[in-house]
Design a binder for these strands. Structure first.
Lengths: 189, 189
DNA sequence: CCCGATTGCCTAAAGCCTTTAGGTTGATCT
DNA sequence: AGATCAACCTAAAGGCTTTAGGCAATCGGG
């Protein structure tokens, strides 16, 4: 009997690949076991159950995203930082649609707090410090940016922009430019 | 044998309620049959399979949303129209989380084209005619608004705004105001 | 009003998927 | 070399989806 050499990490990594190739909803223990050349039950040593498997992929995705974002932000500020951060988001979702879908999973509060999610918000706040926003306005702006990035990327992934011109990337560039000017002159109530 | 009096419409309506109460991912033929007091196989006269059931709920949701939006837009223009449309979106998602999740389902192109989806885009365009946007800029703006609405609503539904203040509705109001001013003075390249 | 067709719902069964319990064997540490 | 741990297995229970085929309630036509 040749051992496959599974570890939790290798299982999760293979799960992430499966999700990217087959879609997040086809990430199941049996499909994964098939791909790993292993009996289904063997996975249960590394993962609590099917849901736990998906959560672990989500955490991996959030972590990878935060890592890329941090790297992209190094040495940038203002508009440059905004665009770099946004592009990381979009590129990641296009490269890894399954992982991105996983990252959208609703995590229970404790898990969410321990995930890389808060790091994202922190980076957005850091970007906004390059603009001149007072206290709560910064929060509103964080939420606006988060909404736009997530919304655009998931509509694009869903094919929502496929049947109209101009192509999606052009809108992306123009939208980022528009957000930049909006942040420079954020309207007070 | 007392008949339950199923029709495709009643099945889909019950499915929508189930999705709202239990979550879209728990919308399954067996759960639905249980709730309708009917054998699972009976559903298959009204619905092709589990996926078809979900698609039908998605189409119902898109249609309901478009109907509400059209009603809300009657007699409004400019900022009023923008806010009314946005609120329809957010309120619907909060009232009917399962249906809203269903509406996010990726439909095949033919089904999508025949759905109420295009009506949404058309209404957004109509709203934007109250602002002064040239050709492709209107498309960019449609996409921005679509992204913000969808992004905010799904982040909120996911609980993304739960653990920071101010509360989400305040951000919603401020974000809509910000979008209004942005549209009034849309930056050209 | 009744007869035949249609439709609504059923039982049965096959095949998949998830999860648990328990056993065996390879690797590792002393 | 022996003991221990981890990796992987087989077996089995139970749920879910889907198809096939059958009976009975209802409805339209004579």
């Amino acid at each position: 009997m040749v051992r496959a050499g599974l570890t939790t990490e290798r299982v999760v990594r293979a799960a992430a690949e499966l999700a990217d190739e087959a879609g997040f909803d086809r990430l199941t223990p049996s499909e994964l076991a098939r791909r790993l050349g292993v009996q289904v039950a063997s996975l249960y040593s590394h993962v609590k159950n099917a849901h736990d498997l998906r959560v672990k992929v989500a955490l991996l995705a959030l972590d990878e995203l935060a890592g890329r974002a941090a790297a992209a932000l190094a040495g940038r500020a203002g508009r440059d930082a905004l665009v770099a951060f946004a592009d990381v988001y979009r590129d990641y979702a296009r490269e890894h649609p399954g992982r991105y879908a996983a990252a959208q999973l609703r995590l229970d509060p404790a898990t969410a707090a321990a995930s890389a999610g808060p790091r994202h918000a922190e980076m957005l706040r850091a970007i906004l410090r390059g603009y001149d926003l007072a206290g709560p306005d910064e929060t509103h702006a964080v939420r606006l940016l988060g909404s736009v990035f997530h919304g655009f990327v998931s509509l694009e992934a869903q094919g929502g922009f496929d049947h109209s011109s101009p192509a999606a990337p052009e809108s992306w560039v123009r939208i980022l430019a528009a957000l930049d000017t909006l942040l420079q002159d954020w309207p007070r109530p």
